[in-house]
């Protein structure tokens, strides 16, 4: 117990020294400011050209896959249900990083070589597809049976009732959990750095490797992720309010 406390106080001391070394030493402060300034643009480029497109493309593909998977699960057709179940179980039961490694480093062994960016898109889409399918399935099931029947009773077929009546209502229910998936995805794209995608976090690693300012660069990257996620949570709030217009308060 005592030794643990001592270790902790020692570490706090080190942090103090680090901060002191910055603020009592104008040269050090200037070096850090310069590095922060010059690395901002490369980091933003990593975000704009890789992190954000990777997120958007993977989410769009993943969501499509998720809807199809949810419908397969609810189809009442046994083989489809089983395939959907196995897919969801396999993706949710294995680490995302391992999946990315299988796609990028593993598949070439059997002659399938895929570039870093498409590999990442495949990995993330499969992931979103599995997690979001459970959200969408629950949302569809939460819509009362009477809504399907009302659709059928005015002559709709399954597709029409699904598209016009059920999915619009299910989407309202699923926006909050899907937003969580989306925000997680933004952060998870940092794992693509491990399969050579030069997204924001990999840029930070590359820059830090040249000047050894790890704390500065990783903190800077973290702040940019935070800003992106913060903006997304504002957008989420707006969408929720828009979709809530037909519900009594």
């Amino acid at each position: 117990m005592k030794t643990v406390l001592m270790q902790i106080s020692l570490k706090i001391g080190l942090v103090k020294m680090y901060l002191n070394s910055i603020f009592t030493n104008p040269e050090r402060l200037e070096r850090l400011t310069n590095i922060a300034e010059s690395s901002l643009l490369p980091l933003l480029k990593g975000a704009i050209f890789y992190t954000i497109p990777l997120t958007l493309i993977s989410f769009a593909l993943g969501l499509t896959l998720a809807i199809l998977t949810a419908l397969a699960r609810l189809s009442g057709i046994k083989p489809l249900e089983i395939i959907a179940r196995i897919y969801v179980s396999a993706i949710r039961g294995t680490p995302l990083l391992v999946q990315l490694f299988i796609i990028f480093y593993g598949l070439p062994t059997v002659g399938i070589t895929i570039d870093p960016f498409p590999s990442a898109v495949i990995g993330f889409s499969l992931n979103v597809g599995a997690y979001a399918s459970e959200i969408i399935r629950a949302a569809i099931q939460s819509i009362p049976k009477g809504q399907w029947e009302a659709g059928y009773s005015i002559g709709m077929n399954y597709q029409q009732a699904l598209k016009r009546i059920i999915l619009p209502q299910a989407s309202r229910v699923s926006i909050p959990p899907l937003s969580n998936t989306f925000i997680s995805l933004v952060k998870d794209t940092s794992l693509a750095s491990m399969i050579l995608v030069t997204e924001m976090f990999r840029k930070a690693q590359e820059i830090a490797a040249t000047n050894y300012e790890f704390l500065l660069l990783y903190t800077q990257a973290a702040l940019i992720y935070w800003v992106i996620c913060f903006i997304l949570s504002i957008v989420q709030g707006r969408i929720e309010r828009r979709l809530d217009r037909y519900v009594s308060k």
Partner: peptide
Amino acid sequence: ISAFRSLTGMVFQSYNLFPHK
């Protein structure tokens, strides 16, 4: 079935209106 169903109109005990419309 859908052609036949279009011959009748149904009014439900619990209305079942589309709440988003």
